[in-house]
């Protein structure tokens, strides 16, 4: 029991940190620009594909740098030549733009790399068991992922809260005219923010691609959960995103380990339930079977109880 609990906790933290990697860039873009970027998961996917491609050409370590940079450039181009023009028409236009972009990216990826998953296998340098816990090995690439995820949080936190450029960026969101009048290049700042946000998505893609399947449906597969994390954490809150990621990761992992159902609870409470009882099928669903809907249940509850999320400053 202790064995399963420990391994589950570890798995939960790993999954939570993966979720945070996915959401950090999205949170950055939303909190600094007010743009809810539906194409974020697609940029993540592009990161996974680019790292696969570059790793084949120049090796894994250079790819770890080049792929996020390339994603950053793609992000900058999206902002400069797309979003900037749409921005004038308001948030709905922006959301629709990124929404359409997600489809476009998926089709492009399919055209370039095909519909099937590519063999994005873990490179030999990080493909060894880091340590062993109760006989289950813990792969080194997951360790690297945890380290990168934590580094991302620290980098973003320090950059935004403790540096001058962070101050200017925050000011540019609320008072663009004033910041512009003071001589700062506001459009340039937005390009930078979008580029950094996309680069973070790309970096997440490099590592996440090993854990998930690098195929054109990757963006669709992780898109919903990313938004759940952001909403639960509070739109635009970095700390909230971290807490929500860990919460969802750990809750979901533990739910899988629980083989009890509502039926067992009712019977333990002395209530007789038989096959003939109404809703019998519902009671007999094991918690483990329902585990993957845990994040969505949390999302609904959060929107009812506290629409601004754990640490958000404004309502959704």
């Amino acid at each position: 029991m202790l064995e399963l609990a420990t391994v589950s906790l570890l798995n939960g933290i790993v999954y939570g940190l993966l979720l945070f990697m996915l959401t950090s860039g999205l949170t950055l873009i939303f909190s600094m620009m007010g743009v809810l970027n539906f194409a974020h998961a697609s940029v993540f996917m592009v990161g996974a594909y680019l790292s696969y491609q570059f790793a084949r050409w120049v090796g894994f370590w250079p790819a770890l740098v080049i792929a996020p940079l390339a994603c950053g450039l793609i992000g900058a181009a999206i902002e400069r030549y797309g979003l900037r023009h749409v921005h004038k028409s308001g948030h709905v236009a922006e959301i629709l733009f990124t929404f359409g972009l997600a489809y476009l990216i998926e089709e492009l990826v399919t055209m370039i790399w095909g519909r099937n998953a590519v063999a994005n296998s873990v490179p030999a340098v990080i493909d060894f068991p880091l340590f062993s816990l109760f006989g289950s090995s813990f792969p080194a690439y997951k360790g690297l992922m945890m380290a990168i995820s934590i580094a991302m949080f620290v980098f973003l936190y320090v950059a935004l809260k403790r540096t001058r450029i962070g101050l200017v960026i925050q000011a540019a969101l609320t008072h663009p005219q004033m910041v512009g009048a003071l001589g700062h290049d506001v459009p340039g700042i937005f390009v930078l923010v979008f580029a950094v946000g996309s680069a973070l998505a790309g970096l997440a893609g490099v590592i996440g691609g090993f854990m998930l399947l690098t195929q054109p449906t990757l963006a669709n597969a992780i898109g919903p959960i990313v938004f759940v994390v952001v909403v639960i954490g509070g739109l635009g809150s970095l700390g909230g995103a971290l807490i929500a990621s860990m919460l969802i990761g750990i809750l979901q992992t533990f739910a899988v380990a629980i083989d009890y159902s509502l039926l067992d609870a009712l019977r333990a409470a002395g209530i007789a339930v038989t096959r003939a009882s109404p809703l019998y099928d519902f009671y007999s669903i094991k918690v483990a079977t329902a585990a993957p809907i845990v994040p969505y249940v949390l999302l609904v509850l959060m929107l009812i109880v506290r629409p601004r999320g754990l640490m958000g400053k404004r309502d959704v």
Binding site: L18, F134, A257
Partner: peptide, 11 residues
Amino acid sequence: QDFSPYVAKIK
């Protein structure tokens, strides 16, 4: 997306 929890249970 992540079968690790299921694998932990199998183990």
